[in-house]
Design a protein around this nucleic acid. Sequence first.
DNA 1: AATGATCGTCGAAGCGTTTCGACGAAGCGG
DNA 2: CCGCTTCGTCGAAACGCTTCGACGATCATT
Lengths: 352, 352
Amino acid sequence: MATMHDVARLAQVSVSTVSYVLTGTRPISQATREKVLAAMAELDYQPNAMARGLASRRSRILGLLMPMDERGLGATETAFVTGAAAAASAVGYHLVLSPVGGGNLDDLRRLASQRMLDGVVLMEVQLADERVTVLQEAGVPLVLIGRTGDTTGLSYVDIDFEQTVREAVAHLVGLGHRRIVYVNHSAATLASGYGPALRTRDAFVAAMTGHGLEPVMIPAEDSAAGGRAALAAAFARTPELTAVLAMNETAIFGILGELTGRGLSVPADVSVVSMVTSPQVAELATPALTAMTSPGSALGRIAIEALVRHLDGPGHERHQQLLPCALEIRGSTAGPRRPAPVSTEPSPTSGG
Amino acid sequence: MATMHDVARLAQVSVSTVSYVLTGTRPISQATREKVLAAMAELDYQPNAMARGLASRRSRILGLLMPMDERGLGATETAFVTGAAAAASAVGYHLVLSPVGGGNLDDLRRLASQRMLDGVVLMEVQLADERVTVLQEAGVPLVLIGRTGDTTGLSYVDIDFEQTVREAVAHLVGLGHRRIVYVNHSAATLASGYGPALRTRDAFVAAMTGHGLEPVMIPAEDSAAGGRAALAAAFARTPELTAVLAMNETAIFGILGELTGRGLSVPADVSVVSMVTSPQVAELATPALTAMTSPGSALGRIAIEALVRHLDGPGHERHQQLLPCALEIRGSTAGPRRPAPVSTEPSPTSGG
DNA sequence: AATGATCGTCGAAGCGTTTCGACGAAGCGG
DNA sequence: CCGCTTCGTCGAAACGCTTCGACGATCATT
């Protein structure tokens, strides 16, 4: 393996000159540059990443930190990862995947102090997330996918849950639905402070009351069985429901199964909208699901790009951005069987 | 950030002694060790990964190389990744995720020559895969998930497609099915030398003829539409089919939809077995799919463990291992409506 | 008691870069 | 033609660690 010394010797220049050719830190004459480049080509020289990292105190490695729990990643989270990996590689950085849960903060502290990571993208952020504090204390540049409750001074990219829910509800209301049930993540997930679950809950309440409608939310375990149970609960609570809005990508197939099991057809009897869903998953269902398509890999990409911008030019400060999910109408929504008259005006009670 | 010098000074020993305490390379007396440990604790010392990597010529970073094409990762591939990440982290290595397709071999060569990766796990291996050659030439320790056509001298973990197909066919035959159609990946995928598609094809032919049955294989594009088309083709070719074996995780939902669309019920009219599938996906369908459950994260874990074993003790040579998928019977298989008599003996034509 | 081994520790030489200060050679205004 | 920048290059000092050879001291062996 050739080193800079070898290149320098062959090109008859000093080692530092070779370095300047490579990094562009100082001006180099055209003639010298070409000599050096030729020598590098001849020796098939590749800079040693470790040496470079040690001397420059920049590893060009970014971390993607995700709590890796039992059930693995959903399609949406997977898209974050692949988007981030592609983006990092495109800007000449490496991406290390680190499973660090909320539990082992010491591992995280250790990881952060190893000086191996130039910066970090944190996934699956809770509303109150100690990992953020740890990383900030360690002085590691940080971008979140998701966001904490208080985001002052933090950079993040997240889904615009408010707008997403608003559009989903508007779609259903526009079709004539009035009895809409929202199937969220589990009660435990809500209690743990999982942002998406909480934000969509609030947004749903706001959107529904904005239309003068009663917001009914049912939590569901992340499983097909959980979806079934949730649908049963929904019918118990609101027998006349005509539409379901579901946040829980896993539960939704249980919901569909249970609807079929009850002899109800989608969308003739009940319309279904899937929230924060990948097109691939939406296409799996029969009929294909009308869904709010998550900006999956874009989130990963944007997070990495914001992080790199922050590393390269320290002029840039916080990057805070919300991306809405796009409504993609497929086969699971239609007008209700007996459309009720719906005013597009907010009702008097909500005080538009 | 404290360095080894600081620790050494505080503990009143030499720098090398601190290093020996950390690495255990040479014996250190109990008294000295404690002094050093105390100093490290007091200074909150963390070794600098870059410096360590430069000096020891071991980065403790492993690469996970995957071609990142349009459609992202399926549940099975995602499981490889998470399994590998967890395993790497468990043995004190970092895992970098590198999207390197078959196209940019130069990128791969560059990556391999940077001396940043101690070893590499290669995913999505083709039967003839130039990436393997490149990495071998670069002298990078290598473990495959999947395998090339010629595996001499290579380490790999892969799914035992032969056995998996054999068991799936045996399950269906045991239920009384005789007209079984195998829905594989697309013709293009087959032509590209994608191992799983080719191996399952051959295994299917072997298993069916072993039972004295005619093997019918239909390729399908990786989409719900592809699945629909494939099922139509299957019925055109074998109108009396009673069972479908599907390799294509994406197409299978189209298959199910098309069956329902034709007024056929699963499993009463047609049984369906999904191959190399994650339980999560199998549970999404209604009825839940009888499936050959892929050893997803185990493959990733085993690959990493084999790689690390190879790095730590050079005594270990090739690791070659096949893992079968486990048959998990759910609701999509049953006996055919009019069971045909089936001999468990191989038929005379196949020459048992 | 002399002779090796073995143990525990040290100092110093790397590992392959980046980066800083310096310095000769041009280029330029006056 | 003189002093001043600017340009292009060099040598050397980091960067923070591992590892090698050496060297007393201890301990077992004859």
